[in-house]
């Protein structure tokens, strides 16, 4: 049985199947953009919501049915001049939860998501004045953590690493191409449009990166990055996922930054079973009808037991339960999907 939380431009939904077929519950938070889901160490569910009218909020739930909004979500102090437009990710790291936000920054919670404190070493970084937004805004959207080492992905700034549990941070983007600058221009310290990162918890210095400029891998904790694009129909996209049980990598290529749809309308996940050395189309079941839609970075999730689901900007869900060998489109349609969370 699959139970999928779907975060959309207008509300969240729970999609699940039983013997009677697929059912949809929702919308939860009608009218709100549901931008991220999380789950704290004590199994409390978290949902980040936002609205152009009312700003952002975080809600907590024990059962994904009744929700309570926390009193004070991550908030920029007035003297920073920044505004909080979206919570992009909620990442659990032991008894700490990290929130990556826009305008870009990190906040942490030590009480299961009830209260939040800014991560000053990143938020007030010496390069901050040089940070510029991408199309999606200036946002900290992905976290990777392994004991005292942390990585954060910020668009359109790059990957930063902390080796001291988040106190200090340094940009780590050597080998990644810059976008929007001549090839012979001096390499800037920041200004890299990372779209997504995933790593191997057992080899945390091995990280895979879907960047605006292509697909990369590092094996030295982000000190150096190298392209891994063989077999991909395009090197643009937003998804990078690594399945912990099999080591299989997933990405969903889109044609280009100027045309963010699947090449020739062929919506496909691509997989690699050799750490990204070579990619191939994932399994069967894909639609023969053109699918000119996109898949966003938060809209792919897996349970590390062979089930993976992604949602599209066109509001459709695709599911595999055999580690990507066979795929099926689920029957319902939703608003633009930005977050997927498999409920266990």
């Amino acid at each position: 049985m699959s139970r999928i939380a779907v975060g959309t431009e207008k509300g969240a939904y729970v999609v699940e199947n039983d013997q009677a077929g697929w059912t949809v519950r929702g919308p939860i938070f009608p009218g709100w953009k549901v931008s991220a889901f999380g789950q704290s160490q004590d199994r409390t569910h978290l949902a980040a919501v936002g609205s152009n009218w009312f700003g952002v909020a975080i809600h907590r739930s024990a059962d994904f049915e009744s929700w309570e909004q926390i009193e004070a979500p991550p908030t920029w102090p007035e003297d920073t001049g920044r505004s909080m437009s979206q919570i992009w990710t909620l990442h659990t790291d032991g008894d700490r939860i990290w929130a990556g936000v826009a305008e870009a920054g990190l906040f942490t919670s030590e009480d299961q998501g009830v209260s939040w404190d800014p991560v000053k070493g990143l938020n007030e970084h010496r390069t901050r004045d040089e940070w510029e937004p991408g199309l999606g805004g200036l946002c900290a959207h992905r976290l990777l953590t392994a004991e005292n080492t942390k990585w954060v992905a910020i668009s359109a700034v790059g990957v930063f690493r902390s080796d001291d549990d988040g106190v200090t941070w340094e940009p780590k983007n050597d080998g990644v191409a810059t976008v929007g600058a001549p090839e012979d221009a001096p390499r800037p310290e920041v200004g890299y449009c990372v779209h997504c990162v995933a790593h191997d918890p057992n080899r945390p210095s091995h990280i895979w990166r879907q960047d605006h400029s292509g697909v990369y891998r590092t094996t030295d904790g982000a000190d150096s990055w190298h392209r891994i694009e063989e077999g991909l129909p395009a090197n643009f996209g937003f998804v990078m996922w690594r399945d912990e049980s099999s080591g299989r990598l997933f990405t969903i290529p889109l044609e280009a930054d100027s045309n963010r749809v699947p090449v020739e309308g062929k919506l496909r996940a691509y997989i690699s079973d050799d750490d990204g050395e070579r990619w191939s189309e994932a399994g069967q079941g894909w639609s023969d009808a053109p699918q000119f839609t996109g898949v966003l970075r938060g809209a792919f999730d897996g349970d590390n037991r062979g089930t993976f689901c992604f949602g599209t900007t066109g509001g459709k869900l695709w599911l595999t339960s055999d580690n990507g060998e066979s795929w099926a489109e689920l029957p319902s349609s939703f608003p633009r999907i930005g977050a997927i969370h498999l409920l266990t």
Partner: peptide, 15 residues
């Protein structure tokens, strides 16, 4: 208390 963030911005002004 949860309404504060929704009705006023970081400067304390109405959104």
């Amino acid at each position: 208390p949860g309404l504060r963030t929704h009705l006023v911005d970081e400067k304390g002004e109405i959104r």
